[in-house]
């Protein structure tokens, strides 16, 4: 072991015993706004998930006064039975607070579900395309180009009519339009990695393509995928609420933050302040997600030493 003893003298870069995850968390925490955002998202998710437990009224039944244009302002107390509507009621007398809570279930879950599906499909397609190249790549990327050259919002409305508005329609459409972006991102990352020597080395050791992709290429592409996915959540929530606001998304009596706003718009002249709530929820959620995404981008930046 003559070699070993001589070489031991060479300095080993000193490194604290710290796992990668805790390094990322430490760097993430530096972004105070992102931490606040995380808190906001957590609270909203919790409140929505537990809506069944704490909401005062049925979100689909006009409790205050059935009939058209039977809205109530925030804090309204019904003189006949003493029911109090903290955030008032919507255009046909349904409790806004309860609708918002249930609407959160839909809006947040659409955002998360689409993001998950898009991340999965986009990653698989992008990895296959970037790794194998050639004909497969050409075909897949032509499909991606095609989808990306469809006008997003106009198509969203048209497809919603075709499939019939509803929860799954929205999820399917948003996923269909979302995956190409992610797959391009993953493809680019895989392309830049696949000719690196460590991939060749793994191949030389006898690794299968699947192993190379899942154990080496994807873990090295994870940072951009995570950041992309985070920002996607916000994008999908806005897209869902826009379409629902226009009346082509989640349809009554189910509530989403977008269609609640549309309902309140009908009575905007009489009860303008009620418009604040649904919009504020969308805004806060998306803002928080954007802060989180930004912080993650920094925390996961491969150029910064881990």
């Amino acid at each position: 072991m003559a070699v070993a003893t001589t070489l031991d003298r060479e300095q080993i870069a000193s490194a604290k015993e710290e796992s990668q995850r805790s390094v990322i968390w430490r760097r993430f925490r530096k972004h105070k706004l992102a931490v606040v955002g995380l808190g906001i998202i957590g609270t909203l998710t919790l409140l929505s998930l537990t809506a069944q437990l704490w909401t005062p009224y049925d979100p689909t039944v006009p409790g205050f006064n059935s009939g058209v244009q039977a809205f109530a302002n925030p804090g309204y107390s019904n003189p006949s039975n003493g029911d109090i509507y903290i955030m008032g009621t919507d255009n046909i007398g349904r409790d806004v607070l309860s609708r918002l809570a249930y609407g959160g279930q839909i809006s947040l879950s659409v955002g998360l579900l689409c993001t998950l599906l898009v991340a999965i499909i986009g990653t698989i397609v992008g990895a296959i395309s970037g790794f194998f190249g050639g004909f497969v790549d050409t075909v897949l990327m032509r499909i991606v180009d095609l989808v990306l050259s469809l006008p997003f919002l106009p198509m969203l409305l048209a497809l919603s009519i075709v499939l019939g508005p509803g929860y799954w329609t929205i999820v399917i459409i948003l996923t269909a339009f979302g995956w190409p972006g992610t797959s391009r991102l993953v493809r680019g990352s895989v392309l830049s990695l696949r000719n690196l020597d460590f991939v060749e080395a793994t191949r030389a050791l006898g690794a299968s393509n699947t192993r190379i992709i899942t154990r080496h290429l994807l873990p090295n592409s994870l940072a951009p995928i995570i950041v992309d996915a985070t920002l996607n959540v916000g994008g999908f929530i806005v897209a869902e609420s826009s379409v629902s606001f226009l009346g082509f998304g989640i349809s009554e009596p189910a509530s989403s933050w977008g269609n609640i706003l549309a309902g309140l718009e009908d009575v905007a002249r009489q009860a303008p302040l009620q418009l604040i709530w649904p919009g504020l929820l969308i805004f806060l959620t998306v803002l928080s997600i954007n802060f989180i995404g930004d912080a993650l981008r920094d925390a996961l930046d491969p150029r910064l030493k881990l």
Binding site: D197, A201, A204, G206
Partner: peptide, 27 residues
């Protein structure tokens, strides 16, 4: 087997070196 020119790109930055060295045996 092969030994590469560039010591920086020849090791997967996300994998502890022990795992890299032992990957062939695992495979």
């Amino acid at each position: 087997q092969i030994i590469f020119q560039d010591p920086y790109s020849s090791l997967d930055p996300r994998v502890p070196i022990g795992q890299s060295v032992g990957e062939g045996l695992l495979i």
